[in-house]
Simulated scan of single mutants.
Amino acid sequence: MERIAVFPGSFDPITRGHESVVLRAIDLFDKIIIAVGTNANKPGFFPLDKRIEWIKKTFKEYDKIEIRNFEGLTIDFCREIGAKFLLRGIRTGADFEYERSIAQMNKALMQEIETVFILTTPELTPISSTILRDIYKHGGDIKPFIPKAIHGDY
C-alpha cells in the first residue's frame, strides 16, 4: 500500500518553515500531497492560484510532491485520495497543544489516520505566515523567510 501523507494548510504565503517540514518528511512517505485549503467565508490574503503557483515552484524538482486544493474537512479529503497520514509542523508548545487536539479529533473521525509531527528547526521557529503577511502589508521584505524559488515573485 502506498504511504500518502497530506500536508494541509492555507500557505498564505508558503514559508521556509513549510518547505523545511516537507523536505525533511519526504523520505518517510511515497507521496506528499500539499493540500491548500479553501474557505469561501475566509478568502486568503494572497490569491489561491498564486499560492499554488508558489508551492509548485518551491517543489518543482520533487516527483513525490503533489499540490492540490480542497474545500471542507481535511479528513474527508484524505478519504477521497486514500491518504492515511497527515503531516504537521510544530513550532512551539502552543502549536503542539493545538495540533494535538486536531489530531485527536481527526482520529475520532477516521480511525485509520495517523498524524506525523515534524518539529521546526530552531532557526525557522519564529516564522509564520501570519507574521509574514503583516510584514508584507507594511512594505517590509519577506524574502529571508520564504523559499528561494519564489524570491523573484516579491
Rank of each mutant, 00 (worst) to 15 (best):
C78L: 05
I14A: 11
P43M: 10
R24I: 05
E114A: 08
F96K: 00
Q104D: 07
I131Q: 05
G89H: 00
A149E: 15
F11R: 02
T58F: 09
R68Y: 11
L28D: 14
R133A: 02
P13D: 09
D76M: 06
I113S: 07
I32D: 10
D12T: 06
P43F: 11
P8M: 08
I75H: 09
A94E: 15
K50W: 13
P47Q: 12
E53R: 15
G72P: 04
E114I: 01
R79G: 04
G9T: 08
A25R: 02
E80C: 00
T130F: 06
Q111R: 14
M1I: 12
T58L: 04
I127E: 06
T15K: 12
P144E: 08
K60L: 10
I55G: 04
L119C: 13
L132F: 12
L48V: 15
V21F: 04
I131K: 10
G44H: 03
Q111C: 03
M110F: 14
Q104P: 00
Y98D: 08
F29A: 07
F59W: 10
I102R: 03
D153H: 14
I33C: 02
Q111H: 13
F145Q: 02
D27V: 00
K50H: 10
V6D: 02
I26W: 07
V21I: 15
I90H: 07
V116L: 13
I150E: 07
I135F: 07
E19Y: 13
D95Q: 09
K56H: 10
S128M: 02
I135Y: 02
I4N: 04
T74E: 02
G140A: 09
G89F: 04
F29D: 08
D49C: 05
T125H: 01
K143R: 15
D134F: 09
A35L: 00
L132T: 03
M110V: 00
I14F: 11
N106F: 10
I26L: 14
I142Y: 08
E61D: 15
N41M: 10
A40D: 13
P43S: 10
I146H: 12
K64A: 14
R3T: 05
F117L: 03
K148M: 11
H18A: 01
I33P: 01
K148G: 07
G37E: 04
M105S: 14
R16D: 05
M105K: 04
I14L: 13
I135T: 03
H138Q: 11
Y62A: 03
I32A: 07
T15C: 07
I90L: 14
L119M: 15
R88K: 15
G17Q: 09
G152M: 06
F29H: 04
K107V: 00
I33K: 00
G139V: 06
E80Y: 04
I34W: 05
N106G: 06
Y136P: 00
R3H: 13
G82C: 04
N69F: 08
E61M: 08
E53Y: 14
D153S: 12
P8F: 05
V116K: 07
M1R: 11
Y98L: 11
H18V: 01
I150D: 12
D134E: 15
Q104N: 13
E99T: 00
G37F: 08
E2Y: 10
E114T: 05
T58I: 02
H18W: 02
E53Q: 13
Y62C: 02
D12C: 07
A25C: 01
P126A: 12
A94D: 14
F7E: 01
R88G: 11
